[in-house]
Simulated assay, not measured.
Amino acid sequence: MSNPLSDLIAEKGVLLADGATGTNLFAMGLMSGDAPELWNVDHPERITKLHQDFVDAGSDIILTNSFGGTRHRLKLHGAQDRVFELNKRAAEIARAVADKAPRKVIVAGSVGPTGELLIPLGALSFEGAVEAFKEQIEGLKAGGADIAWIETMSSPDEIRAAAEAAIAAGMPYTFTASFDTAGKTMMGLSPKDIFGVVANEPEQPVALGANCGVGAPDILSSLLDMSGANPDATLIVKGNCGIPKFKGDEIVYSGTPELMAEYVHLAIDAGAKIIGGCCGTSCDHLKAMREALDHHQKGARPTLDDVVAKVGPLKNRAADTPGAGSARRERRGGRRRG
């Protein structure tokens, strides 16, 4: 089925997605614990600037400021009755920036986890999750989003619920999982098994893959697993810019523009069609990534040892993972898109 994202991939081959939302909004004054989605109404000029900066840095895809836009997330801020309004406004802001760009820019409606556990582990029913996601996606669609961008997922059931919601809302969709727990998601999904998650849905994702996690080496490891299992898949990687560390009172990420440029080269050769940055990724990183993408010369499919040699050690992959070779492995936790 034709859609703007597939059409742009067909035209350009590999696309550059944007960088971090939360990290950059914190730099603009967002306080820890505040809902970024409220800024769509309270500080729309700051959200506009973020999107514009990403476009100026070379992004082909910008994600709306709506990661926590379900009623379940917004209820933590007393905004559960504003789902449609806040998501519609998020998409409108991004749409206005995209429409002014000198090239085609895709507006991807960011849809993050509800923060709730589904039955039997928690109280949220599958049907309730579908309903909540559909409410959000309908707002994003009304605001002009091109695609529902389901991201940072852990539970296969929650991915299915969000996919069913997108289908019910009449939106094409993508999804990405965060493989941040010994090479799997927190709920045990492996990269190579991601293709079966929505296999029975009547509409399949435009693209799928991985985001967030614990840095470039680990997300590239997940990418190699995915492209090895399905070489023809349209794959997304949107990795964190290194590892967060405290510098005084601030959290900084260890990834340099040079490292993120190398990550782009490796990702293209490993089979990714959409490459972006997650937590910690600034516009300076994106500019280097754009340059790398535009001047990439096709190389051989990298091995894990190639990844480690070029962008550093794995932080989170299980020591007994098949195919890990002699790559050095360390263990670390991870969390949501920043």
Rank of each mutant, 00 (worst) to 15 (best):
V214G: 00
G183P: 11
D180N: 13
Q204I: 09
G209P: 08
G188D: 12
G170Q: 08
G183E: 04
G196P: 09
T185I: 08
E151D: 12
E164L: 10
K192G: 14
A199C: 10
A168H: 01
E164R: 09
T176G: 08
P191F: 06
L208C: 13
A169F: 03
E203Y: 12
T181A: 15
G213I: 06
T185A: 06
M187F: 15
M186S: 15
T185P: 03
I194N: 01
A161L: 08
A177C: 10
K192V: 08
C212H: 05
A210I: 12
T152D: 04
F175A: 03
T176M: 10
D193Y: 15
A169K: 00
T174H: 07
D157M: 15
S190D: 12
K184G: 04
S154N: 07
I167M: 04
V198N: 05
P156M: 12
P191S: 10
E158G: 02
D193S: 12
I194E: 07
G188C: 13
E201F: 14
N211W: 06
A163P: 00
P205M: 13
M187H: 11
A177N: 03
E158C: 05
A182P: 09
P156W: 12
A177R: 02
T185H: 03
R160N: 03
C212S: 07
A161R: 01
S154E: 06
P205I: 10
G183A: 13
I159M: 13
T176Q: 12
F175S: 02
N211Y: 12
T185R: 02
P202D: 08
A166N: 03
P156H: 11
R160D: 06
G188M: 14
A199S: 13
R160G: 02
P172I: 06
A169W: 02
I159F: 07
D193C: 10
D193A: 15
G183I: 04
F195H: 14
E151H: 07
G188R: 15
A166E: 03
E203I: 15
E164T: 00
P156D: 10
D180E: 12
F175E: 01
T176K: 09
P156E: 14
E158A: 05
E158W: 01
A199G: 04
G213V: 10
I159A: 05
F195M: 13
V197I: 11
D180P: 05
I159Q: 04
A210W: 01
A162Q: 00
G183W: 01
T181C: 15
P172W: 05
C212T: 09
D157T: 10
K184F: 15
K184W: 07
G213E: 06
S190F: 13
A166Y: 03
L189K: 02
P202I: 12
I167G: 00
T185Q: 03
V197L: 12
A210S: 14
F175H: 07
V197K: 00
D180C: 15
